[in-house]
Every structure is written in structure tokens, then in C-alpha cells.
Design a binder for these strands. Structure first.
Length: 332
DNA sequence: CGCTTTTGACCGGCGC
DNA sequence: GCGCCGGTCAAAAGCG
């Protein structure tokens, strides 16, 4: 079994829908702000997430953004870029304080940094957990639960559980406070991979799916029979916490999160285009990539080995998208 | 038959 | 200390 992890994410941002205050843990999108339920809390499990500026990005992969260059830990933001961690980074905290609403920022919590130091203990805990679990989790004390770096993004989609190429098993579902939509909890089915993700719909915009990844995959991305990465609409806003590098232990070259490319969220008058995932469309918004952390267009590189073939796989897209949309896209 | 999903119960953290 | 809440467990059901 897997190590039971504790988590108690405060949910300050979720509280009051009538509350017009913009919490620090919000996605800032074009003309609107979305709370990120549970993602950013005072405890810092996942810091605030702001709008990602992606000027000049034709269609960058989220992983491109996150993997190159390595995100700067909060503590060392003014320092040279650290070398990528071999596994889960000690300091997964990245905070880019936006100088302006248009400046990019990705952030994450800082308490994870300390907790991550305990990563070595995880294995031992796992064994212990095995023994004790049958008694309904007599938890270890004195050990704050280790938090993996988390990464959240928003997707405009009717599909809750977006296919990101990895295989997930749902292990829980909870009603979300102040939201009519439940939150689903998934875990990567790969044996030694403890990556988790949460999927929920925004209560403010039911068409928006908030997906939060936690942890880094330690294995290559298994291509699902349906084809991976195919169904992510392009209009996703992500924010992050974390580090996606992975470098992982498995020698897989460091892929971590199976998150599709940046999807530009266009929320002008709440008119959001649904666009096929792999098309290079002009970003609906004019972003300014002022973030030194973010790669420049010329740095674009294929992230998924399988992405290129799939990019042309309209068969998949046609499964998932209205034909009209596809048609329009092709014309582009 | 094996894997996934569902779902109620349980646990721990946090605020009051 | 108590209650709330997020997160997880695990048995049962569902599915291919």
C-alpha cells in the first residue's frame, strides 16, 4: 500500500462566493479571477497562482515552462538558478511576485520546503504504514506530513478528468464546500509513483476544471490506449507550484507532471474558445513574458515524445471536440 | 478475474 | 476541547 499522507489544506480561498476580495491564491485570468479551491492556503501547501504570461508563446508546453529553466526556489529567488533536483526538489517554492497584473507569476508554498527534507523518511514510513494500516491508520506523530510540490492549472472543458497521458486511479471524492461540484482524488497507478492529482470544477465557472497535480512522476509517461494528451483544450490557465522537474529516480529523463501545454484562458465576457489541444493558435491574450523563469519561444522543444504524432491525430480530437470546432481550427 | 470506481467512515490539522 | 473540513482508506460494487 501506499504511504498514507496527511493533508489538511486550509481552504481560505474557497469560502465565500460572494466575497469579492481576491485572495492571494487565485488564478488571475484575462478579466477574471478564479479562486483555487484549496490550492493556496495560509499553510502554504500551494501558493498563489497568478496569470501566466505567455507572450510569444505559440503553444508552449506547460512542461516546457516548468522544466526549463528550473524554477527558482523561493528562498533563493535572487540567486542563480539552482541545478535541478534529482528527485522531488527540496524547495519547490517558486514565487514570482507580479509587478503588474500582466506579469507572470507562478508560485508555491514554502512550508513544503522544510517538509521535503523528510523525503528520506518516506520509505520507512511506508513500511511502517503497511503494518499499521489494518488498524485504521494509527498515524505517526511528530512528523508533519510531507508535501509534494503541487501544480495546478485550469482548463475549460466539459471533461472532468482530462487525459494527460498517465494512468490514474480514483481513490476518493469529496464534496467541496461552497461548491456544487465534488472534488475527485486520483493517484498515479504506477507502482512506485506517488503522484496525485485532484480534479474539481470551479464553482464560479462550471465549465472550468481545476486540476492539481502533486508530486513528480518517477516513471515515463505511459501512453494510454486512447492516446495521451489529446483532449486538453487549449484554454487552460495554470499556475504552479511547483517544480516539475523531476529528474526523477527512474532515469526517465525527468518528466514529471503530465500536464498538457499551456492553455490560454480567454475569459473575455466569458467567451471562451474551445480549441483543440495541439493546434498552434495565436494566444487569445496578449501576454508579456516578463518572467525570467519562463522559457522563450525559441527554447521550445518537444516535451512529450509522443506528442508530435498525436498532434496530428485529429481522430482523437474529433472524438472529443465538436466537429465544427475542429473544422474552424483546421482552417486556421 | 483483475482493475477501477464509488462511497461511507475515519483521521489529523486547524480555528474558535 | 470541540467542531469543521480536507484528505485518505478500504470494502463493495461496477466494468470490460
Amino acid at each position: 500500500m501506499e504511504k498514507k499522507e496527511e493533508n489538511s489544506t486550509g481552504n481560505s480561498a474557497l469560502s465565500d462566493q460572494n466575497n469579492q476580495m481576491i485572495p492571494s491564491n487565485s488564478f488571475f485570468m484575462a478579466n477574471s479571477t478564479f479562486d483555487i479551491p484549496c490550492e493556496a492556503d495560509q499553510k502554504g501547501s500551494l501558493g498563489f497562482i497568478d496569470m501566466l504570461n505567455v507572450q510569444d508563446f505559440a503553444s508552449p508546453s506547460i512542461f516546457d515552462l516548468l522544466q526549463t529553466p528550473p524554477l527558482i526556489p523561493l528562498q533563493s529567488q535572487s540567486q542563480p538558478l539552482p541545478s535541478p533536483p534529482s528527485t522531488v526538489p527540496d524547495s519547490s517554492e517558486v514565487v514570482n511576485t507580479p509587478a503588474s497584473p500582466n506579469s507572470s507569476s507562478m508560485s508555491s508554498s514554502s512550508n513544503e520546503a522544510a517538509n521535503d527534507k523528510q523525503s528520506k523518511i518516506v520509505g520507512e514510513e511506508e513500511n511502517e504504514q503497511e503494518k499499521t494500516k489494518k488498524q485504521l491508520k494509527p498515524k505517526k506523530k511528530n512528523q508533519k506530513r510531507q508535501r509534494e510540490p503541487r501544480f495546478a492549472f485550469m482548463t475549460k472543458s466539459e471533461i472532468d478528468n482530462l487525459d494527460d497521458g498517465y494512468r490514474w486511479r480514483k481513490y476518493g471524492q469529496k464534496a467541496v464546500k461552497n461548491s456544487p461540484f465534488p472534488r475527485s482524488y486520483y493517484r498515479c497507478t504506477s507502482a512506485a509513483c506517488g503522484v496525485k492529482k485532484r480534479v474539481e470544477r470551479s464553482s464560479e465557472d462550471p465549465s472550468v476544471v481545476v486540476t492539481t497535480y502533486e508530486g513528480a512522476h518517477t516513471h515515463p509517461c505511459p501512453i494510454t490506449p486512447r492516446g495521451s494528451f489529446g483532449i486538453m483544450p487549449e484554454n487552460t490557465t495554470f499556475g504552479g507550484v511547483g517544480i516539475c522537474s523531476g529528474g526523477g529516480s527512474g532515469g526517465d529523463g525527468g518528466s514529471s507532471f503530465a500536464i498538457p501545454q499551456v492553455i490560454h484562458y480567454q475569459n473575455q465576457q466569458h467567451q471562451i474558445q474551445q480549441q483543440p489541444y495541439f493546434h498552434n493558435l495565436t494566444p487569445p491574450l496578449s501576454f508579456t513574458n516578463t518572467n525570467p523563469l519562463l522559457p522563450r519561444p525559441h527554447q521550445e522543444r518537444p516535451f512529450y515524445p509522443s506528442a508530435a504524432p498525436l498532434a496530428r491525430d485529429h481522430g482523437l480530437l474529433e472524438d472529443m471536440l465538436p466537429s465544427q470546432i475542429l473544422k474552424e481550427t483546421k482552417e486556421d
